[in-house]
């Protein structure tokens, strides 16, 4: 599997500065991800798991520590890393195939190869027949399928998923989890999913990274030694899930909500 890669996080720290005060969001994250591995990152809100993913994709800069992809430090965004956001983020004025094609805008392939890649990935996510549909004509689940196809069409070495099914209803979510499992097996790609759904984390992940908040740290890493494809009714998964859920039961200490981290003004301005 030479097309996949190892992601290595070493002593990763991220601090926001809010009104002159340092607010640590990630503290000393160390994690190695093997080629072709499926890693789930689970934690309650505020544990910095989404920030971690934004660091990996390159949308957040200024951090301490190292993020290495195949031994090379990650700088900014790159086509070798794909992402699926919680909100599908499709461009409403583009059709399904045009939205997927957006990812290929800067790929070196010929138009013919691009068209083939788009068609192949529409088939991969099961959306044949919807090539020319616009986002407003799609359900939430279908939109997220398009987003997955868009994330994969560049054949990235790693696909990052930021609570990709968090906004979907339970049935659609269950369906897409199975689909994602199938796609992962078919594409043999490294995937990192961030979620607050322990069931989802255990169903999909080869390992589940449990995070704890304030500041975001890795509490422990739970291996899920159950072969894929997995069934959600598997008793082994249920045992692991219950074990992880106990972590969160202890962690529940009542406290007032903290001041939300406001994005800085520069984040809104155009980066060019």
């Amino acid at each position: 599997m030479s097309s996949t890669s190892t992601l290595s996080l070493q002593g990763l720290r991220k601090t926001y500065h809010v009104e002159g005060q340092a607010l640590p969001v990630l503290d000393d994250i160390n994690l190695d991800i093997a080629p072709g591995e499926f890693v789930s990152i689970v934690g309650s809100s505020g544990c910095g798991k989404s920030t971690l993913l934004r660091l990996l994709i390159g949308l957040e800069s200024s951090f301490d520590g190292r993020i290495l992809l195949d031994g090379q430090p990650v700088a900014g965004t790159g086509l070798e890393r794909g992402i699926v956001f919680q909100d599908h983020r499709l461009f409403p004025w583009l059709s399904v195939e045009q939205n997927i094609g957006l990812a290929l805008e800067n790929s070196p392939h010929s138009p013919r190869e691009k068209a083939a890649a788009i068609a192949e990935h529409i088939a991969l996510v099961g959306l044949e027949g919807f090539e020319t549909a616009y986002p407003h004509q799609l359900s939430g689940g279908m939109s997220q399928r398009v987003a997955i196809a868009r994330g994969l069409v560049n054949r990235p070495r790693i696909l990052l998923l930021d609570e990709p099914f968090g906004a979907l209803d339970a049935l659609t979510r269950a369906n897409l989890q199975q689909e994602l499992q199938r796609i992962w097996q078919q594409e043999k790609i490294t995937m990192v999913i961030v979620t607050h759904d322990v069931d989802e984390a255990v169903l999909l992940g080869d390992r589940v990274v449990v995070m704890e908040p304030r500041p975001g740290r890795i509490k422990r890493i739970v291996p899920v030694a159950v072969p894929h494809p997995r069934s959600r009714s598997d008793a082994r998964l249920a045992r692991i899930r219950d074990d992880i859920l106990r972590d969160f039961a202890q962690a529940e200490v009542p406290r007032l909500a903290e001041h939300p981290v406001e994005p800085r003004f520069e984040d809104y301005a155009f980066a060019w």
């Binding site: 965004t77 086509l79 992402i83 800067n106 994005p263």
Partner: peptide, 16 residues
């Protein structure tokens, strides 16, 4: 900002 981030992920230049 959400869609602007998508264009950063796909490494769009200014013209794009």
């Amino acid at each position: 900002r959400e869609l602007a981030e998508v264009t950063r992920v796909f490494r769009f230049n200014t013209r794009q």
